[in-house]
């Protein structure tokens, strides 16, 4: 797949070349198998605690700006 380039006007008023719409033709052929990215029990549990932490990690353990002021 080669990148399709297009010309677009920039703040200078001049046209500059930027990357255009470059996609794989057709429709998706496979599922978005994101769960397969977690390949063993350790990774799965880690993801549950960090990604789906709402249910599987005490809210005190959430960090920084993600930590809730009151538990919910």
């Amino acid at each position: 797949m080669t990148d399709k380039m297009i010309k677009k006007q920039s703040f200078t008023g001049k046209k500059v070349e930027i990357l255009g719409e470059t996609y794989e033709p057709g429709m998706p052929a496979e599922k978005g198998q994101w769960r397969k990215k977690l390949r063993n029990r350790k990774a799965m549990l880690k993801y549950l605690q960090s990604g789906e932490r709402y249910w599987y990690l005490d809210a005190d353990q959430w960090c920084g700006s993600e930590r809730r002021k009151s538990k919910a």
Binding site: M27, W34, L38, Y47, S50, G51, E52
Partner: peptide, 25 residues
């Protein structure tokens, strides 16, 4: 008609941040 499906709450959570930042934020 073409459709996109498969939005479990887990998948929505993943889609919004990827493996490293998944959340509803």
């Amino acid at each position: 008609t073409d459709i996109v499906a498969g939005f479990s709450h887990e998948t929505i959570n993943y889609l919004l941040g990827g493996i490293f930042r998944a959340s509803y934020r």
